[in-house]
Design a protein around this nucleic acid. Structure first.
Lengths: 224, 224
DNA sequence: CTTGACAATGGACAAGCGTTCACCTAAACA
DNA sequence: TGTTTAGGTGAACGCTTGTCCATTGTCAAG
């Protein structure tokens, strides 16, 4: 039986440990890849030997109203988040950038992206009507060290990272020795990519194979 | 559906009209529903009578490097948005990020946020890192000139301004000669305050009396 | 002891969905 | 004149994927 207390609008903390893990993986997968996982991908991640194990959890999550799916259709998740802010397995030291409503007076009027395409200042997201946030991708990263001073990025700055594939010349957040640092991503045609520090006193080049590039830096933010 | 806007936000360099429509539908679908469309859903929307019509366009879009997909897998799109390198233009997704108007110059008083008049763009920052206390009234100012290079603020950067009274040592946005510029605010006890440029080649000091201080700079944002 | 949640196995089916082949039209080259 | 590029039809083929069946086991509550 469901023992949700009736005063709770959103109860999502009565999730099982396993269910939380499933939910987090689904969210994380979307966050990283931009699309939702398939049931068999979830199965693989948790090393289930049957897809039905996943199905059970999905059914439970749907019954507990934290998930929604389109029956019969592939990779069509929808997550209802009252936002718990619990432990997400983001990269360490990363402030998650999430669930911040749009400020300003432009909240009204739902922009149809197709039509308003050229008009800047009208393209606003209406989280209210969507009811969920489809992409929580970007996050901010605190810069440590001075390996990027030649790119005018200093110790203590914050960099907005967007997880995606890096191109040549991008500044990327990479995981080196358990710590995320910024480097410039160099990829010449026909050559293996490598990472380079933007500091003349740091001539090191880091081979990319053993690294985990977590995303591309989009902007620097420094408090004054 | 008309297209009065001269330039799209995409790099629709050589995209066909039809290809633009397809791309926009895909983006729009993701934006509305939270997941990507299937090929047959695209087909339906455009009333194609063969899925192969969609396939052709997808192949074209992939070849033109605005799209990416995982072969054989359902609803696994990835859109390469050209918001990498430059731009005062912003990505169309404003998900989960604070949205602050960018103003080039402020004639007098504070920028009129309501209508977006005078806006030359919008800035998206993660709120956690910037710590804007009263984001509702904050605005971003495009930096012109190099009068603040010694404070690591460069031409083209954006500065988030919070309207409030300045204290000694604050960097402020001040109205000089009809244009808003950044200066450091100096106020010693018993002396009248004045403004100072952070550039050793700009030794000027501006008396504060005839100026209008519009707010205090709280953060610098520079796109990479 | 029974009941019911929770968790998982194993196998199988059918619909969803991406992909391909053959073939067609029209415009733009050259 | 042929060739290329963009756009489209029609019909399959087969992998992907969601779904359902029966079955096993644990654990806490009634």
């Amino acid at each position: 039986m469901d023992k949700r207390s009736p005063k709770h609008l959103y109860t999502m903390k009565d999730l099982t440990q396993r269910q939380k893990e499933i939910l987090e993986f689904i969210e994380h997968h979307e966050w990283r890849n931009g699309f939702w996982p398939s049931i068999r991908e979830i199965q693989e991640k948790f090393e289930f030997k049957s897809t039905n194990a996943v199905m059970g959890h999905l059914r439970a999550l749907e019954k507990k109203d934290v998930l929604e799916r389109i029956p019969g259709q592939a990779r069509t998740f929808r997550i209802h988040r009252p936002d718990d802010g619990d432990s997400t397995q983001l990269p360490k030291e990363a402030h998650e950038v999430v669930d911040i409503p749009i400020v300003g007076a432009i909240a009204a009027g739902y922009p149809d992206r197709v039509e308003g395409a050229g008009e800047i200042g009208r393209l606003q997201v209406d989280i209210g009507s969507a009811g969920f946030s489809s992409q929580r991708r970007s996050f901010a990263l605190q810069v440590r060290g001075d390996s990027m001073v030649d790119a005018e990025i200093y110790d203590g700055d914050r960099v907005v990272i967007e997880p995606r594939d890096a191109h040549d010349g991008d500044i990327v957040a990479a995981l080196i020795d358990g710590e995320t640092t910024l480097k410039r991503y160099i990829k010449k045609a026909g050559e293996p990519p490598y990472l380079k520090a933007e500091n003349k006193f740091y001539p090191e080049l880091y081979p990319v194979t053993e690294l985990c590039v977590q995303g591309v830096a989009k902007a620097v933010v420094r408090n004054l």
